[in-house]
């Protein structure tokens, strides 16, 4: 919830926000009526992807940023990619 409250406060101050949620907490973004959210199918503690999976971190970050240009109203997008373990050991 913490970031949801922060997002609402920042939006109320007139500054657009976009948030990255994991699927387990999608209901929080929905209940708090956040302006822009990207939802990943990743586990808690790894919202952008596995450690070392830089390509996935980029994919998720860009998806969240693109909402600033594309969303004309409150928008939540769930990314389809399943979590993947990094090949890094």
């Amino acid at each position: 919830m913490s970031v949801g409250h922060v997002a609402r406060a920042i939006e109320s101050a007139g500054i657009p926000t976009s948030s990255i949620y994991i699927r387990a907490f999608r209901h929080v973004a929905e209940e708090m009526k956040l302006s822009r959210a990207v939802v990943t199918r990743h586990p808690m503690g790894r919202p952008l992807g596995a450690a070392g999976d830089h390509a996935r971190h980029r994919r998720v970050t860009i998806a969240a940023l693109e909402l600033f240009d594309s969303a004309a109203e409150p928008t939540l997008v769930e990314l389809p990619e399943p979590f993947r373990a990094s090949t890094r050991r």
Binding site: S2, I10, P16, T17, S18, S19, I20
Partner: peptide
Amino acid sequence: DLVLLVPV
């Protein structure tokens, strides 16, 4: 101008 938020 814009804020990217990451909750965990």
